[in-house]
Simulated scan of single mutants.
Amino acid sequence: MRGITSIGHVAIKVKDLDASLDFYRERLQFPEMLRLKNEDGSTWLVYLRITDDQYLEIFPGAENDRAPGWNANGVNHMCFIIEDLDATAERIKAAGIKLTAEIKQGLDGNRQAWIEDPDGNRIELMEMHPDCLQFKAIAELRKQRQSA
Rank of each mutant, 00 (worst) to 15 (best):
L125G: 04
N110W: 03
N64Q: 13
I4D: 01
K93C: 06
R145I: 12
G61Q: 05
C79R: 01
Q146F: 07
G106E: 07
E102A: 10
K93F: 04
C132D: 03
T43I: 15
E57K: 12
I138A: 02
G96P: 01
R142Q: 14
W70S: 09
R25G: 01
M33T: 11
N38T: 00
G61H: 03
V75Q: 10
P60F: 09
W114S: 02
G8Q: 09
S20C: 07
V10L: 14
Q29D: 07
G96F: 03
T5H: 08
A139Y: 00
S20A: 15
R142F: 07
D86Q: 12
D16H: 08
L99V: 10
G120E: 06
D86L: 05
H9N: 14
Q134A: 08
I82P: 10
L125Q: 04
M78F: 11
N38W: 00
Q146A: 13
H77W: 01
D86V: 07
S147M: 15
S147V: 13
Q54K: 14
D119C: 07
E140T: 05
H129S: 07
H9I: 09
L85K: 14
V14K: 00
L99I: 10
L85Q: 12
R142E: 13
M126G: 00
T43E: 07
E116N: 09
Q112F: 11
D16P: 09
R66D: 13
L28D: 04
S6E: 10
V14E: 01
A62W: 04
N73L: 11
S20G: 05
N76T: 15
G106P: 07
E32Y: 00
G8E: 12
I92H: 12
K93H: 06
L21T: 03
K93P: 02
A148V: 14
T88G: 00
N38H: 03
T5P: 01
E116Y: 04
R2N: 09
A95N: 14
M126I: 09
D117A: 13
F30H: 08
D53I: 08
C132H: 00
I103T: 10
K136L: 12
N38A: 00
E26G: 05
R25H: 14
G8V: 05
T88H: 04
M1W: 10
A89S: 15
D84Q: 06
R111E: 05
A72D: 14
N38Q: 01
P31E: 04
I115W: 12
P31H: 06
L21S: 02
I138K: 00
D40T: 08
R145Q: 13
A67Y: 11
G41T: 05
I58Y: 06
D84Y: 06
D108C: 03
G74L: 09
L107T: 13
S20Y: 04
Q134K: 07
D53Y: 10
I115G: 08
L125Y: 07
L56A: 11
N110Q: 09
M128F: 11
K93W: 05
Y47G: 06
G3F: 04
K93S: 10
G8I: 04
I50G: 02
K143Q: 15
Y55I: 05
D22Y: 08
E57N: 10
C132I: 01
A148C: 11
